[in-house]
Design a protein around this nucleic acid. Structure first.
Lengths: 311, 311
DNA sequence: CATATAAATAGATTTTATCTATGAATATAT
DNA sequence: ATATATTCATAGATAAAATCTATTTATATG
């Protein structure tokens, strides 16, 4: 068994296709096929079921692939140790980030970061909270950026900042008349929500104390896949939605006029970096943490944890 | 970096000598030298300081070796997974066992075990409790057999049995007249003890509530390195010592006449298997656990945890 | 100063990972 | 039904590597 073979196995598991996996590993498809065949021979078990399309791992194969990922993760730590000693900031950092943060947070720091630390390769995946937790545990990603508190065993949270939640209302909506809103001012039937699975959705449900019943009477049952869609729904149709602070940064003056703040203490969502175990990429993650804090508007850094909406 | 290179590094760290390490790996010394040189080249750091004799790891080298051991440990789990699936009981089990148990416990089960599970290779090291804990943490051994409770974080204890402590007295000693002893009946100046570092010693000190002062007046300051030495000291000279039950199994009838039991509830030492994390060698360790319980005299299996002497 | 020991170096040899080209099996389209 | 994709496996050639034996260099020891 070699490290390369394990990497091939992981690649096939990831792409579920020998040729693509080979491409990803910069080798020919026969090379990859043979090496995988060799491991299977050595261990005396089939790892992949090639009869299925796309290729799927056997039951035992899945266990072995998981273990292969662990081995490769430990190997990567080897380089981390050397980099740390050399004072180099280098290596790969695999990040999972939730979809309600990704489009607003990433652009703020990515460019600065990669300019400042050219030897670091950021690999970013947009994932929901559960997937981030699962992939942290299995070692597929090194860190997550998401909304806490999670209370997941084995997962450590480092708060980045508190992001205020605010209402975005259409001119026709009655809430438009208010200066400072209360959650009760929101008509559940005019409230546009993200689809199930987004933590922001569940926070808004908590904030507005929505019950299933109050939504059943809804005129039109549509749930958006992204915050951008929510904004457009409000713009184009009537209604109201809740935006996190970072999503309001790119708004036009006219759109800003449609923002209504909640009465102080304003509801906040807690945005954190989460990691699994005391990772050796610690230094890298610390640096990313700093860079994020440097890149977000200072107003957000000042937000306090007075009223954090539970997830 | 290859698995083989890591194994060479670990071998050199273990033997602190290139030629012996090479022998252990079944390769020539130049082969091992070159491969280690290559890793050092690849990482851009020196792992070993060859100017010292015996060879010693550099500061960074020690960290890397520790990591190498982790990688190899994870790799070994790969095979474990396959073996488990195949229902095979095979592999290597590295055991650390304390010196006051080794000579009495090992002979009881080793032969049966290796006959029953010929594919398992037992590698046994006689180590003190602290070393067992340290080597479990660093992954040098898979399990320990020692006296608990330890209360070491991250170390799990599985009680095997309770071993009674009993006095072994010379005919000249006043305690010889007693039928059932009390700890107070022991004259601290006539008590032979193991040297510092053995957990049995500290248990006896606790049991007899010995203070430094009471020993200072001692006629002859000798501390034994093994239980066998203790027995001989009592046999040849005057005095008394405390033996664990297993050490009394091989005694002659005459020697058995010199055993004095403590008054019920008799003092016991708790003998356990200890492991680090939920290890994949679990199955192997479970089997060993069973085999040990099957091989010890049934009387010991019946001992209860009424009065466990703290360590 | 001679001798022994330890690790590194040199050159030959075997092993192995990789490539290109091709084949077999299966699904998809004409 | 036949032709065409697609997907993975196989064959043979080649380049890269790990290994061996023999030897050298550097240190310690008597």
């Amino acid at each position: 068994m070699t490290f390369v073979q394990l990497q091939y196995i992981i690649a096939v598991d990831t792409f579920r296709h020998f040729a693509s996996a080979a491409k990803h590993c910069f080798v020919s498809q026969p090379t990859l096929s043979m090496q995988i065949h060799k491991v299977e021979e050595e261990l005396g078990v089939k790892i992949f079921d090639r009869s299925k399309q796309p290729v799927i791992a056997t039951e035992l194969g899945s266990e072995l692939i998981e273990q292969a990922r662990k081995i490769i993760a430990e190997k990567n730590i080897m380089d981390e140790i050397v980099h740390r000693k050399k004072g180099l900031v280098a290596g790969e950092l695999k990040i999972g980030i939730i979809p309600t943060l990704a489009p607003y947070l990433l652009p703020l720091f990515v460019q600065n970061f990669t300019k400042k630390y050219p030897l670091v390769r950021l690999v970013v995946n947009e994932l929901t909270t559960d997937l981030i937790v699962a992939q942290l545990r299995s070692g597929r990603i090194d860190m997550g950026i998401l909304v806490t508190p999670l209370q997941e065993p084995g997962i450590k949270e480092h708060v980045l900042f508190y992001e205020e939640l605010m209402a975005y209302v259409s001119k026709k909506n009655e809430a438009y008349q208010k200066t400072y809103m209360l959650p009760q001012d929101i008509d559940p039937n005019k409230l546009w929500l993200l689809e199930e699975g987004h933590c922001l959705r569940s926070q808004i449900v908590n904030l507005c104390e929505l019950r299933k019943a109050s939504r059943d009477a809804s005129h039109f049952d549509y749930e958006a896949g992204s915050i951008e869609t929510l904004k457009r729904m409000v713009d184009m149709n009537d209604g109201i939605t809740i935006l996190p602070e970072l999503a309001t940064l790119g708004l036009t003056t006219k759109q800003l006029g449609q923002i209504r703040y909640f009465k102080r203490p304003a509801p906040m969502r807690e945005v954190s970096i989460v990691v699994h175990r005391d990772f050796v990429k610690k230094r890298l993650i610390e640096i990313l943490n700093e860079e994020i804090l440097l890149s977000i508007p200072s107003k957000i850094n000042l937000n306090k944890s007075k009223y954090v909406v539970p997830v």
